[in-house]
Computed example of a mutant assay.
Amino acid sequence: MELDKIEIILEKYFQGESTIAEEKELKDYFSSPNVAQHLQQYQPLFGYFSQVKEQKSTQVPESLVRTDKAIPLQTKKRNVAWLSIAASVVVLLGIGTYYVSEKNTPPVVAQTELGTYDDPEEALAATQKALALLSNKVNVGIESVQYIKEYEQSKNKIFKQ
């Protein structure tokens, strides 16, 4: 029965769901001499934990010891009050510049009278002029399409699809 309990706790340990008391029970079990044969593969893992716990390191490795002078640590203190005042001044200058530039711009005039004609003949002439311009642009586009059609026909003759 104890073996089943250890296996359940071991599964919880590897899932990261075990408690500290259960982990202590696993360490005690794996440090004892009577570990089940199919669980002996985990014995070095828990043995390492208990071994490291007993080991105390009071010496600093020589590779980490510096022989020259220690570097003094100086922290720079920034005065937060001055920074906040400077930021406030910048914001106020931006707002002031915005309002001054808005006052200097001329207001937009509503142009509701655009495109209206009192004389019908004048309106007809303007419409014909606009339609002629549109027709010219459309004809240029149609000519371009004709070139593409000729290209397609030549390509089909060469490659014989």
Rank of each mutant, 00 (worst) to 15 (best):
P44Q: 00
N139H: 07
S32W: 12
L133M: 01
Q161M: 11
S31I: 12
G16W: 03
K56L: 12
S84Q: 02
L64D: 10
V65F: 05
D28H: 10
Y13A: 03
S32F: 12
I85L: 05
S18I: 07
Q74N: 14
K53R: 07
G141Y: 00
A81D: 05
N139G: 05
P44G: 02
W82V: 04
I9E: 08
K24R: 09
L92G: 07
D68G: 13
L64E: 12
A81C: 09
L26D: 04
E54V: 14
E25W: 13
K129M: 04
Q153I: 05
I9Y: 14
Y48H: 05
A132L: 00
Y98K: 05
L92I: 13
Y147H: 00
Q59F: 11
D68T: 09
P44N: 01
A123E: 05
V138L: 13
I158D: 10
E11W: 13
T67D: 09
Q15D: 14
Q146N: 08
V145T: 00
V138N: 04
A70I: 10
T67C: 10
E121Y: 08
L3V: 11
E2Y: 12
Y13C: 03
E11V: 15
N34H: 09
E150K: 15
D118W: 02
Q59I: 11
K27H: 09
L39Q: 08
S32G: 12
V140Y: 01
S57R: 13
N79L: 11
Q111R: 02
K149S: 15
V145E: 00
Q41K: 10
Y13E: 05
D4V: 14
S154Q: 14
G96I: 06
Y48F: 13
R78A: 07
K76L: 08
